[in-house]
Structures are given as C-alpha cells and as structure tokens.
Design a protein around this nucleic acid. Structure first.
Lengths: 226, 226
DNA sequence: TCCAACCTAGTCCTAAACGGACTATATTTC
DNA sequence: GAAATATAGTCCGTTTAGGACTAGGTTGGA
C-alpha cells in the first residue's frame, strides 16, 4: 500500500526523532533512551514513558517492526527496526517545510523578570550557578567538537553541536553581563534596596511589548489586601 | 495560619509566573494572557487553558482572591488579586535556590541532525527561514531595548530582554554558519548533489555511524567505543 | 447596509509530555 | 555482605499545549 502523505504528518516530532534514531540500527526502547541521551537529548529529550509509548504507536502503525528477544542473563527485550514505510514517513517529514517552532522555557528568566520582588543575593546565586553550568557544558562541547571537526560522517551532527556551542557561549556572556549589572546596581549609593513600588505610565499609548509590563488596569489597582 | 514553606513549593513554575504577573495589579484571566504575551511569553508561554486552570487552583489555595465583575457592554469577568499568602509564596519561590532547569526544544535541530537522510535543499530552506525569523525578532527586541535602556524601573525586564537579544544574535550567527557550510559542501567537486540515499562509507570498517560518535553529548565522557 | 473580522472572556476536551514510583534479575563495587 | 548500577521495561498522576466551541459587542470594508 502506498504511503499517503497525510497519514504520517499527524505524528508528533518525538515520533520522528525515534524513527530517525532507528536509522542507526535496530534497538530496544532501553537502547533508544541511552542513545537519545548522547545525541538529540540536548535539544529534544522525551521522557522515558514517552519513548516507550511512541514505540508502541509506531509499531502499531507499521512504521517500525517489533521482534521479541529472549535473554538469559538479563530481562527479555523487544527490538525495533525501521520498516520501509517508516523510512518513507521519516523522509517525508524531513523534507516537509513544516517545523514545530523552537521552544525555550526558562524558569530562571521568570525569576529574574520578577527580580524586584526577590532577594538580590539569591538572584545572584542563581545566575552564578547558571554561569558555571554553562561553562561546564561549553567545555564538554568543545571536547566533542575537536573529535568531530572536519569529519564528513559527522557533518550534520557537527552543525547541531555548533548550535549548542554558540548557544552556551551566548548564555555565558549573558550571565556575566547580568552579574556585572547587578553588582554595579547593588553597590550604587543612595539606592533603596527594597522592591520597586510602581511603574511609570510613560509608555501609556504605545505598544510596550516585552518588558513594559505596565499594570493594564487604568488605575485604582494600587490598593493592597482589603 | 502561618505559611509553611513546604506548602508553596509544590506548585509548578507556571503558577508562580501567574502570581508574579498579578503583582502588577488585579487582573482577569484574559488580561493575564495578554500580559503574558507582552512580557514573559518569550521564555515562559503557558497555554490559555493552563492559565485559567492555575487561576482556579491558586484561588482555591487562597494565594489569590477572586471577585466577579458584572459588565454591560462585554462579557462578565472575574478579577484576581494577589493575597498576602500569595505574596509570601511568590517571595519564597523567588528566593529559593531551586530553579527548574532551562528547556530547549528544537525540531529544526532534530531535522538537521538527521540531515543525511534529507533533501539538502529542503534543509537550506528551513535554516533560511530560521534566519529570517531570528532577524525579525532581533529587530523587534532592539526597538524595545531602546525604550528600556537606562530606566531603573525596567532593570530586571531589561536583563531578561538582553537574554533574548543575545540569544537571537547567537542564533543568527549560527544560521549563517550553517548556510555557509552547506553551500560549501553542496558545491564541493566530486560530491553527489542529489538527495543523499545512504550514509557516506567513510567509516567503512567501524561500528555504524553513531555509536562511536555521540554527537552533541554533554554529560559523561563518551565518544569511545566500549 | 451587510458581512467579515476581531475583541472580550471565558469553557471544555484531547493529546502530548514529564517525572517518578514500581517490578525484577544480574553484575559490579565498596 | 550490602549497596549501587545496569538492563528492560510498566504504570500512574500531573503538567502543557492547542484548538474547538459559546456568545455578545465593535469595527472596517465592499
């Protein structure tokens, strides 16, 4: 039966990531999870339950085949292998112009955004940790980069690694910038360290987009708990 | 009743984001959603249903209060206001050293990682679009930056905006780098330019592609065959 | 003038995704 | 000898995303 494009398109990206990893050979769910950790895990990290779930669905849909394997010394397992339909579905997805937009979720930025309500020292500690973790990841990426550079077999993984590298470097710079800014502000004479009490209505008629966050209530919202 | 620290800690980050936004004044769910879009939405963008859900839970938990408001010309609404307990919970969260680690999900990187199976032109088109979108966001951030720079009321939002700026600039550089690399590779003499049907056989005698070559790994040492 | 689009203010449902607890056996490490 | 780690999963509850649906009011354009 021919593969109609529509059939495949409905799968979530995680399913295609699984198909993609199975192009490297047949694997169990357990193998797959370990592989995810070492490969796409830094920009696509499905939960364990998610991976096992996708394997079931993909097998049921005929995009991968399932073969039980008996083992003596360790638990039995099921080996999954990409089928022709699965390859076609993967290829169709790869070549389609649709891409789920990138998502960034940063609780650190949320905390920082409300920094006027927080203890400055606690914030600094958070950013410090962010900085040191970014530095560690960066160092690790650099090691890997040296191994992959110039090797054509790693052309695409290398490009992806470069994204990680550039991203971590940027984050590192940002952390330092923030720490500097907070240090400078913290040492400023005559500045009350208490929380900011009000925002100005200066940008009233405009579209203040990101940071403005002005109280949208025209006024009279100043009253505290009744 | 005194607020024990443990009670608050269990809430998801989204709940604290809601509490944080309510520090700008009482709001309806609808207002909140609009505010999210203009403020934390770039690094924390809960779904509509999520926001309404959190409001219910927070009200039930006494961290915010709910007041119905009759309206003639438009649908009735409910105004939510931070309570003292809510403020305490927010403050406790802000000051706690726990932060949910940042999450990045990039379907584009997934596609690129499996680029050896894809049509190079389709990949280029994806990265092109990524580049132009990043450029647009960057321009928008720069406009906002000009409005916020130097204003102390915007100290923290400004820091957050800087993260967006630096991040987008980094992404832009990466996109250009990738486009260059793919152009160079595409024009290489003797290189088949059609859709890649198989992996390059350069690793002839070795273990199949990835096992030896965990791409952007970060954690434990790897890159060696067991 | 009429229709389409958009704004306000939500509800409801499905599906996706996370994270951890739990089972079970085998090997390795202290 | 106990504790940790590796293998290979299952199961459950919670968090998120995302869109369909309701419903009245306003605004804009043909």
């Amino acid at each position: 039966m021919a593969l109609r494009a529509e059939e495949a398109v409905q799968l979530p990206t995680t399913a295609y990531a699984v198909l993609g990893l199975l192009t490297f050979g047949p694997m169990s769910g357990y193998d797959l999870l370990k592989l995810v950790e070492k490969s796409v895990g830094f920009f696509w990290a499905p939960a364990k339950s998610q991976v096992y779930g996708e394997l079931k669905r993909l097998a049921h849909a005929g995009l991968i085949s399932e073969r039980p394997v008996r083992q003596e010394d360790r638990p039995d397992k099921r080996l999954y292998r990409l089928t022709a339909r699965g390859e076609a579905a993967l290829r169709a997805w790869l070549d389609s112009p649709e891409v789920e937009p990138d998502v960034v979720r940063s609780a650190l930025l949320v905390k920082l955004f409300f920094g006027h309500r927080a203890d400055p020292e606690a914030l600094v500690a958070l950013v410090e940790r962010c900085r040191s973790e970014a530095a560690a990841r960066l160092a690790s990426y650099r090691r890997i980069e040296r191994e992959m550079a110039g090797r054509d077999e790693f052309f695409f993984p290398y490009l992806v690694l470069r994204a990680g590298l550039i991203h971590e470097r940027a984050r590192l710079r940002w952390c330092r910038e923030v720490l500097d800014a907070m240090a400078a502000r913290g040492s400023r004479p005559g500045e009350p360290s208490g929380p900011v009490s009000r925002q100005p209505a200066a940008t009233a008629g405009r579209r203040p987009a990101l940071g403005a966050a002005g109280p949208p209530t025209g006024g009279a919202d100043e009253g505290r708990t009744p």
